[in-house]
Structures are given as structure tokens and as C-alpha cells.
Nucleic acid binder design. Structure first.
Length: 416
RNA sequence: GGAGGGAUGGGUGAGUGGUUAAAACCGCCAGACUGUAAAUCUGGUCGCUUAGCGUACACAGGUUCGAAUCCUGUUCCCUCCA
């Protein structure tokens, strides 16, 4: 399938990750010998990662599995500046505490995918604030600035487009390239990291780092970029009704995560199986070949594999069982997302709409009322028709009340 | 420093004194059809204790019976000139 010799590049290439590689032959050789070290940078603007970052996580996982050492670079320092890449609106600046808290949360998302530690191929997490905040301006100019020419920087796609459109392009944004290139240089020095991986939108920044290392240290460094993923219908990956599909379990239950994968579009199944699971390619080919309703088998497999990677096999199995129960038998299942409500509220007669809002199925009582009006709200599988309907302790079946918003979204309400 | 333009609901973006909780499009939710898919069609899309009430068109005041629309100040953004 591909000409690559190294396990890492071969895997990436065969599974359809790779978009561009700086020096294919050299990178291949590097990855095939010893312990290749590679890093990917992550933003610290939220306290959890969502499915949109999963591709990058998988890249690092493949690196580790292929005998390499993955470095997770947290953009603690760059977050202080604000990534201008998708500019439009400047983001609110975060405090150190917020950034640190975010990094703690994000680290959790990595745990299931990477083995962290002190061993030679153990993953490590570093924060670019460690060096960026100490870097003096003069130092930056002398060490980094001399190696970049305005001539080439203005030719960069993103820059050129902004200039051509006569859009403002701030000095800060212009320097983002320098900071990210400097990150690479710093990791090269500290950890002998010679490979940066990223989405294809990072190509310019990655090449910047590669060149900097060459000029500053005379070292050889490489870059690999992966295709940006969108859904088959062109949507952004990982966004649904209630916002992002978060990886951390406290923000998105395993069942919901499983459902996310179960509901991908037909056209995405094969691609997603290759990117987000570790099933052998020949098995994926078989699953992908299924047609019509048969393809649901492949989706279940995708959901199981993807959920198992993040939440473990047990959670995946429970989710599948729950889905089975809910969708094919219309029963309730314990694995559904659950919200607790004071028993006193139920005894007093809780509005059905309020109950929906409490489980997070809807954002407000009003939204729940709309569902009721449209005949999409169910309590214990009974359609609710009255917007003023209330729940009582009599509705509790087997210790909980099952609420359904439409056919796909379900939750349990437990008296506590 | 000077001159001008702008800030509207998740996004783009109409609206220039009352009929505007605010067009249209996108997104999103639901219903129908299906396979828990896509496409398509239909309805919905600020909140609440919903025949009503409360908030809302950057922020704070003012004019008016009545303001997203007019006036004043403030903040932020942009363009051109220096």
C-alpha cells in the first residue's frame, strides 16, 4: 500500500492519516531506527478535549505503539497570547490558574490512549509556558528572529490571503509562527525531538520549526501532517446539538460517546474505522463493504472500538447493551446518562419540562416544552402531550424515570 | 494625532421611531420517510410559574406616549491619512 519501511509511517499512511511529509525518505529512516521522538501541540483553552482532537491523540498513540516516544505539548504559553489561526474574534485571555486547571483536565483525556512515565518510550507532557514566559525579547530576536525572513513569511498561504484581502494582520499573529517554531527548537534541544506532527493547517508552522532547527542547531527535523477531518457532509467533526463531544466522562457519558460513533454517516464509517480504531485493515475493508442496513453492523463495531479505547471495554459493552435495550426493545438501561433529583421535588410534583432540563436533555424548560408540543418527549416510553404535565414518585420504575427526547436521546432521572 | 465606518439572536446578515422577540440564509432540535444513516419534505429554534409576564439589538444615560432605530458619553473593532 505504501512504500514506507517504518512501522509508524506505514501505519499512518495505510490508515489514511497522512497529508504531507517534509522529507519522506529521511523521516522514514528516522522512524525506523531507535526511538523516534515526536510531538503535537495542544491548546489549553478548555478543560477537556473533544472528538476534534482525537485524530491527534491517535497519531501519538500510533507513534508510541510503533516504538516511539510521544510528547504532548501543552500550549500554556501560547494560550496566553491566543491562537490567531482561526482569528475572527480575539478570545478572552485566560489566567494562569485557568490554564493550569485546563491542562489537568486535558491530561485526563490522554491517559487512556498513552502510557505516561519515565521510560524511554513513555509519553511526557510539557508546557511551553516553561520556556516561552522566560524568553526575553532580545533573546528571541537574536536566536529566532534572525532565521526568519519576512520575504518567506508573507508568502505563506494564510498570511498572503490576509494581506491580499487587505485584512489586518497583527504583529502578534505574525509572531505566532516564531513561537511555535521555537517550541520545536526547544523540544529538539531538551528531548531530542525531531518530529512534529499536526493537522494540515499547521504545515506552515511546522516547516518553520524544521527550518529553525536546521539553521540554529544544524539539526535535521521533520514534519508530518494529517488530513483535517470533516464529516462526509462537510461538517466539523465532533459538534452536535449540545455542543462538543467531549472526551472526559464527566462531560459526556460513555453511552453518549458510543451513540456519537453509532450515528456517524454511512460514508464516514470506513474512514473513521481506520482513523479512530485499531482494527486490522482487512477487517475494516470487510466492514466497509457492507451495504444498506447492513452497514449498521460496522457502525456498532466502530462505536464499540472507539468507546473501548477511551472508556474501556466494559463501558463499551455496557453502552452497546444499553443501546440494544433502548432501541430494539424500548426498555430502560442503567448505562443511560443519569441525573439525580431530590425526592421531595418528585413528591411535590415535578414539571416534566423541568425534569428534561435537569437531565440535560434540553437546555431549558422552554426547550422541553417545545419537544412536548411536537410530540417528541416521552416519559417511560409514554408520549407526553400536556406541557404542564408533572412527574411524581408513582412514575419511578425500578428506581428511576426514563426520559426520552426524540427517538435517540434518552436519560434517567433518579430520586435522591 | 486627524478623517471616516462599524458593534443586532449560535454564525452570516436585514432592519433606520410604533404592525419587531426582530427578515433571510446557515447551523441546530423535532416530526415524516428510513437503517439509531444520508438526501428530501414539514414544524420548531431567548427565558419563565406561557391565553400572560420578563428580559434582549456593545455599555451607561437622555429625547419621546413609544427607541435596535434619534441624541450624549463610554468601551471595543475596522478603513484611510500622519
Amino acid at each position: 500500500m505504501s512504500d514506507y519501511k517504518s512501522e509508524f509511517l506505514k501505519t499512518l499512511s495505510d490508515r489514511g492519516f497522512v497529508k504531507q511529509v517534509t522529507h519522506p525518505a529521511e523521516v522514514d529512516a528516522y522512524c525506523a531506527s531507535g526511538v523516534p521522538v515526536g510531538y503535537i501541540g495542544f491548546d489549553a483553552t478548555a478543560d477537556s478535549l473533544h472528538v476534534g482532537s482525537l485524530l491527534q491523540i491517535m497519531l501519538l498513540r500510533h507513534l508510541q505503539k510503533a516504538g516511539g516516544k510521544p510528547i504532548v505539548l501543552m500550549g500554556g504559553g501560547t494560550t496566553k497570547v491566543g491562537d490567531p489561526t482561526d482569528k475572527e474574534k480575539s478570545r478572552p485571555l485566560l489566567t494562569d490558574e485557568q490554564i493550569n486547571a485546563n491542562m489537568e483536565g486535558i491530561k485526563k483525556a490522554f491517559q487512556p490512549f498513552l502510557k505516561f512515565g519515565d521510560g524511554p518510550t513513555d509519553a511526557i507532557m510539557v508546557n511551553n509556558d516553561d520556556w516561552l514566559s522566560k524568553l526575553g525579547y532580545i533573546e528571541l530576536l537574536r536566536e529566532v528572529g534572525v532565521h526568519f525572513t519576512i520575504n518567506t513569511m508573507v508568502k505563506q498561504d494564510t498570511v498572503a490571503r490576509r494581506l491580499a484581502a487587505e485584512q489586518p494582520y497583527t504583529f502578534l499573529e505574525f509572531n505566532y509562527l516564531l513561537m511555535q517554531s521555537y517550541d520545536f527548537l526547544e523540544l529538539f534541544r531538551r528531548h531530542n525531538c525531531r518530529m512534529q506532527i499536526g493537522g494540515s493547517d499547521q504545515w506552515g508552522n511546522i516547516v518553520g520549526g524544521v527550518n529553525l532547527i536546521h539553521k540554529a542547531e544544524g539539526g535535521d527535523a521533520f514534519g508530518v501532517t494529517a488530513h483535517l477531518i470533516t464529516t462526509a457532509s462537510g461538517g466539523k467533526m465532533g459538534k452536535t446539538a449540545d455542543g462538543a463531544v467531549w472526551l472526559n466522562a464527566d462531560r459526556r457519558s460513555p453511552f453518549e460517546y458510543w451513540q456519537f460513533w453509532r450515528n456517524v454517516e454511512d460514508a464516514d464509517v470506513g474512514r473513521f474505522l481506520r482513523l479512530f480504531t485499531e482494527l486490522p485493515l482487512d477487517e475494516i475493508a470487510k466492514l466497509e463493504a457492507l451495504e444498506g442496513a447492513e452497514i449498521n453492523t460496522a457502525k456498532v463495531r466502530l462505536a464499540n472500538e472507539a468507546t473501548a479505547l477511551l472508556h474501556g471495554e466494559k463501558a463499551a459493552n455496557e453502552s452497546e447493551a444499553a443501546a440494544q435495550a433502548v432501541f430494539t426493545q424500548g426498555a430502560t438501561a442503567a448505562a443511560l446518562p443519569t441525573a439525580e433529583v431530590p425526592t421531595a421535588d418528585l413528591e411535590a410534583g415535578m414539571l416534566v419540562a423541568a425534569a428534561f432540563a435537569a437531565t440535560g436533555l434540553t437546555e431549558s424548560n422552554g426547550e422541553a416544552r417545545r419537544l412536548i408540543k411536537q410530540g417528541a418527549a416521552k416519559v417511560n416510553d409514554e408520549k407526553v402531550t400536556d406541557q404542564a404535565a408533572t412527574l411524581s414518585t408513582a412514575d419511578v420504575v425500578d428506581g428511576s424515570i426514563k426520559l426520552s427526547a426524540g427517538k435517540k436521546r434518552h436519560a434517567l432521572l433518579k430520586p435522591a
